[in-house]
């Protein structure tokens, strides 16, 4: 199932769930992708050359992605312009301990597409700010990168028809009823990792409940 996340009842207990998850996670490698390095340069140093390099990487992918759901070339480029400007303006919200650049840009692109289609803003969850005192956790960032790499591999290994369904789902072409009957990507491990990234922001979450 696309939605085949961990439904273990122990996940209701954050601490028990977390400890169980830690023991299952593989050791992170020491690979940080160029996109993450570039995005951090944009976020922390407003680096225009890094931004231009991110454009070179993502713009053709965004265009392919957007045009697959039937949008014309000119409108696709308008959306790319909005998305890349949002990447520049909202770079402070990028948190490599929770998301790879591709995941963050995917979200921005889908938000923009939906806002255009529906002509109203998509409801989004509360933003979780960085803990100003938190040290950047390199091993957590590398673990997220590694899990994202695994997802890409899993996607590449799918049979063409299965892969087509996954792509349709993430292009936003399947309803939740359709999604629940489909086979999907294994997301349990990356979910556990993201959860570790979220734990850093826990004090904020406590205030939210």
């Amino acid at each position: 199932m696309i939605a085949s996340l961990d439904t273990d009842p122990t996940r209701r207990d954050p601490v028990a769930g977390l400890q169980k998850d830690i023991t299952q996670l593989p050791e992170p490698s020491s690979e940080i992708t160029p996109q993450t390095t570039l995005m951090l340069a944009v976020r922390d140093h407003r680096d225009r050359a890094a931004f231009a390099a991110l454009f070179d990487h993502f713009a053709p992918r965004l265009k392919g992605f957007i045009m697959r759901s039937g949008t014309g070339s000119a409108q696709a480029e308008e959306i790319i312009q909005d998305v890349m400007l949002t990447v520049w303006r909202k770079s402070a919200q990028f948190d490599p301990a929770r998301a790879q650049v591709s995941a963050w840009i995917y979200q921005i692109a889908r938000n923009r597409q939906i806002d255009i289609i529906r002509k109203e803003r998509r409801p989004l969850p509360d933003e979780l700010g960085e803990d100003p005192g938190a040290e950047p956790d390199a091993s957590q960032i590398m673990a997220i990168e590694q899990e994202a790499g695994q997802l890409k591999l899993a996607l590449a290994r799918l049979k063409p028809d299965q892969r087509d369904i996954i792509e349709k789902a993430y292009l936003g072409e399947l309803t939740h009823q359709e999604i629940s009957t489909q086979t999907g990507l294994p997301l349990g491990t990356i979910k556990s990792r993201i959860r570790l990234g979220l734990e850093r922001l826990r004090h904020e979450l406590k205030g939210l409940r």
Partner: peptide, 9 residues
């Protein structure tokens, strides 16, 4: 979102 990012990539 990470899976969506993998599709985008």
């Amino acid at each position: 979102l990470a899976a969506g990012g993998a599709v985008l990539e």
